[in-house]
Design a protein around this nucleic acid. Structure first.
Length: 569
RNA sequence: GCGCCCGUAGCUCAGUUGGAUAGAGCGUUGGCCUCCGGAGCCAAAGGCCACAGGUUCGAAUCCUGUCGGGCGUGCCA
């Protein structure tokens, strides 16, 4: 149940009954000051101003007309807020009846484009954000009943691959040693680049290879395919380690659109959008002006006849809306590509590829190095994603060995993996998607405070309670009796899950889910300190039910972020 | 030059669309009872929300300007 929406609907009905125009926004949200209640409506203030009447009087009329039927009490506070305090009986019923996530999505099809690594190189820390934010959104949208199609638009095409394929062809002894050659993709890439720069004959061959690749030469295509397969399997290893739900079937890279590019350009031409300029085929849209007020073109074919990423992205929209029937296409992509997407969407509108779909670029902020500089290691290289993950798991191993020596070695290893990976993901996911942020080893590898291990620890503590009490949580029945202040806050937080998930989906912002999980775990920790659970007495069953709901909330919530839990740690 | 984003506690970040006394974590300081797990709990110190104007009953949030940073800006993606 979406409690916020429920209260908002009641507050709007009350405002209308109090004399406001129909449709006056009640603006209900969580209370900013808990001493005044659980939720508050701010809408009476603005409405009173427009009506030129006293805001407290309007709020009081709305309070008198509020059709709450026992779910909450409300009163006028401050200059004209309406403060709500949910009834403990209502909270108990919500928890008892509302175990699952309500399907708000109604089967709408959403294509979500995320991760999209460049297969020429290994995945580095810069790929982390799009990958895990996109994955959390895909999982959350699915849980809300949307029909989600994941698309991994990998970079597997273009001039850079001529160099790599030529180098691989030279290195290949015909003994199938590719795996070995490509074990360190980064090194292979650097070698190829050095040759391309130093050896003019090689550079010439590399350029020929690009042409042969695009024309479909079978031998070159075969080498390219082997390269892509190996590079892609490296990515899949990272996804698996990272707990990202992307699978090979979600890959539809740039190369997949190669055969559509000519058609796209023809369709743009038929729509009268193409202008030739300096030998390149361009779309000039008046709204995009750059230097000297001149229009900045969208170049869809270079003067040498080659296509660019605009062409590929146009073909991708055509496919996603036309063949996949997407109603929304979500691009979880670096903020630097903002202009590219504004141009892309404008061209799609002009040529008709947009249809009735909504094309949305949900920009991801940059991960920066110390001092807000572009991210690099001490040696000037980017940090490999696997190295970051390995480091975190290694640190978690030490902590687990220190704190949980009683666990078996296999269990310790599992905990180290779940904690280490979870910490990295949560550190990133808990930040606002759009903000640039500074990469910070200490914060990212911390297991204390507002971190994934804190949430995992709360979950493990609850499981420990069940074990110690000999309780099978699945067999618990009844409705919790919410009584103490700690129980009230815990139940209230649990009741906010649905509105939180809908907010995550509406704004494509997973950090709201992180904030909710932290609220939930903290509310549980305070409850745990103040309310004995296993003590025999009338509260025991009720408190066990609260524990079960909390454990479910943490496990499923973390699950939507792609973070695991453990039964003990 | 033009465009987009940003500037919040020593550090790293939130701040639900303009609401009440700006919140967390880390770090610092001080507490936590033979009691369900101390990866925890409680508390303290720490802020001219870059700066200056403006709009408003009300501004970290909206507008203008200044300073500082990041990114983009016709043949890479």
């Amino acid at each position: 149940m979406n409690v916020r929406e429920l209260l908002n609907a009641k507050a709007e009905a009350a405002l209308e009954a109090a004399g406001c125009q129909p449709g006056t926004a009640a603006i209900v949200g969580p209370a900013t000051r808990p001493e005044f209640g659980d939720y508050q409506a701010n809408g009476a203030l603005g409405a009173a101003k427009r009506m030129k009447i006293n805001p407290r009087e309007l709020a009081q009329r709305a309070v008198d007309a509020m059709p709450l039927h026992g779910i909450a009490t409300c009163s006028v506070t401050g200059p004209g807020f309406i403060s709500f305090t949910l009834a403990d009986t209502f909270l108990g019923e919500v928890l008892a009846e509302d175990a699952g996530i309500a399907p708000a999505g109604a089967g709408q099809r959403i294509v979500i484009d995320y991760s999209h690594p460049n297969l020429a190189k290994e995945m580095h820390v810069g790929h982390l954000r799009s990958t895990i934010i996109g994955d959390a959104l895909a999982r959350t949208l699915e849980a809300l009943g949307y029909e989600v199609t994941r698309q991994n638009h990998v970079g597997d095409w273009g001039t850079g691959f001529g160099m790599l394929v030529a180098h691989l062809r030279d290195m290949d002894q015909g003994d199938g040693g590719d795996q070995e050659q490509l074990a360190d993709l980064e090194r292979f890439y650097q070698e190829a680049r050095r040759r391309f720069a130093d050896d003019t004959a090689f550079a010439e061959r590399a350029r020929d290879v690009v042409t042969m690749l695009q024309q479909g030469d079978p031998t070159v295509r075969d080498i390219w395919r082997r390269y892509i397969d190996i590079s892609m399997s490296h990515c899949q290893e990272v996804y698996d380690l990272l707990g990202v739900s992307l699978r090979p079937e979600h890959v539809r890279g740039e190369s997949a659109y190669n055969d559509d590019l000519e058609t796209v350009v023809n369709e743009l031409d038929e729509a009268g959008l193409i202008t030739e300029d300096d030998g390149a085929l361009c779309v000039f849209l008046d709204e995009f002006r750059g230097r000297d007020g001149k229009v900045t073109p969208v170049i869809v074919r270079k003067s040498d006849g080659a296509f660019l990423y605009h062409s590929t992205d146009l073909a991708a929209v055509r496919y996603r809306v036309g063949a996949l029937h997407a109603k929304r296409v979500l691009y979880i992509v670096d903020a630097r590509q903002g202009l590219h997407f504004r141009q892309l969407f404008a061209v799609c509108r002009a040529v008709g590829y947009e249809g009735d779909a909504s094309l949305e670029h949900h920009a991801v902020g940059l991960m920066q190095g110390p001092g807000g500089r572009p991210f690099a290691t001490r040696h000037g290289n980017v940090l490999r994603l696997t190295d970051l993950l390995d480091e975190s798991v290694q640190r978690a191993r030490h902590v687990v060995a220190d704190k949980s020596p009683h666990l078996s070695s296999t269990e310790r290893e599992d905990v180290a993996r779940v904690v280490g990976i979870g910490a990295i993901k949560y550190a990133d996911l808990s930040k606002n998607r759009t903000s640039d942020y500074v990469f910070d080893w200490q914060a990212m590898l911390s297991f204390d405070g507002n971190t994934a291990p804190y949430l995992q620890y709360a979950y493990a503590r609850i499981q420990s309670l069940f074990r110690r009490g000999g309780v099978n949580p699945a067999s618990l029945t009844g409705t919790p009796t919410v009584d103490t202040p700690e129980e009230h806050v815990l139940a209230l937080t649990l009741a906010r899950r649905q509105e939180t998930l809908e907010q995550v989906a509406a704004q494509a912002m997973p950090h709201f889910l992180c904030a909710w999980l932290y609220d939930l775990a903290s509310a549980f920790m305070r409850f745990y300190e103040n309310c004995p659970v296993l003590e025999e007495g009338p509260a025991r069953n009720s408190r066990l039910l609260l524990c079960r709901s909390t454990a479910d909330g943490i496990r499923t919530g973390l699950g939507l972020l792609g973070i695991e839990t453990v039964e003990r740690m």
